[in-house]
């Protein structure tokens, strides 16, 4: 079953890359935008570290890792979340969701992973580079165990982001223009560029439980810095699984209201 799933996703992605490659200008724009965004972000971050100061007790390298995780997630958003969201909305508006529901394949997986846009890859790569630089120059030796933990935390942060996004996307069954709601989520996630402890207490709680920016970027960075407790690891995994489960339930619930646009 899993092998079959992977092979289908493979077909999906190779076809969508074929379709995207017709627009090659995008690659140049993407590379410029990644370079611009990264140098801007690093510049702003460096302001907080001038004259031996720091941000929320985090070292420069640790903050750089947070920024790396953020950039990585942004790349993931461009590769998968963003292009599929616009498709979900149009499937629902035009009623072509009918075709998907009648395929012998999980509809949630189909609508969320149908498209893969290669234009997010520059972001993904530079995110990984930034994380590596962060780890390397903090003289942290990443044992295999902590590498696994870091990887696990990244996976759960991706799952959390995906679930949040998917719940918003599902609401397009009721509301036509979810783009805008998604934009609100995106603009709030910008807060994830900085470690959680840079924020005041009240906001920190908000960013942990309501919009879990802490789990999205701070926790994976902590894992890379070898400074994450077992409790946080478990919480992050549990949170990811819970949100994933909710997103699936929510999709099935929303489908009950899908009347399939006729005519």
């Amino acid at each position: 079953m899993n092998l079959r799933f992977l092979s289908i996703i493979g077909v999906f992605w190779s076809k969508s890359i074929l379709a995207e490659i017709e627009y090659r200008v995008n690659l140049i724009v993407e590379i410029f935008s990644v370079i611009g965004n990264l140098s801007g972000s690093i510049l702003i971050l460096s302001l907080f570290y001038s004259n031996g100061n720091n941000l929320g007790g985090w070292t420069w390298n640790a903050s750089l890792t947070v920024l790396g995780v953020y950039t990585l997630l942004e790349g993931f958003t461009t590769c998968i979340l963003q292009p599929n969201l616009s498709r979900i909305v149009s499937h629902i508006q035009q009623g072509t969701l009918d075709f998907i529901l009648l395929k012998p394949f999980n509809s949630q997986l189909w609508v969320s992973f149908r498209i893969f846009s290669p234009w997010g890859l520059p972001s993904v790569v530079s995110g990984i580079i930034l994380i590596s630089i962060g780890i390397h120059s903090s003289n942290e030796v990443l044992s295999f165990n902590s590498f696994l933990i870091c990887f696990l935390m990244l996976i759960s942060s991706i799952l959390i982001l995906y679930s949040l996004w998917f719940v918003i996307a599902s609401t397009s069954i009721w509301f036509v223009r979810v783009w805008n709601a998604n934009e609100v989520l995106r603009s709030t996630l910008v807060a994830g560029r900085y470690p959680l402890s840079a924020y005041p207490d009240s906001l920190r709680r908000f960013f942990t439980f309501i919009i879990p920016i802490g789990f999205l970027t701070t926790v994976p960075a902590q894992a890379a810095m070898n400074s994450v407790s077992i409790g946080v690891i478990l919480a992050s995994c549990a949170f990811a699984l819970l949100l994933l489960w909710i997103s699936n339930r929510f999709w099935l619930f929303a489908l009950r209201f899908y009347t399939s646009a006729s005519s």
């Binding site: 379709a19 009623g95 075709f99």
Partner: peptide, 19 residues
Amino acid sequence: FLKNITLVMGQKQQLIWDL
């Protein structure tokens, strides 16, 4: 069941537009 049926709609299409 799904493998046994199909739905064709004159005003909607499932083909990938750009390919």
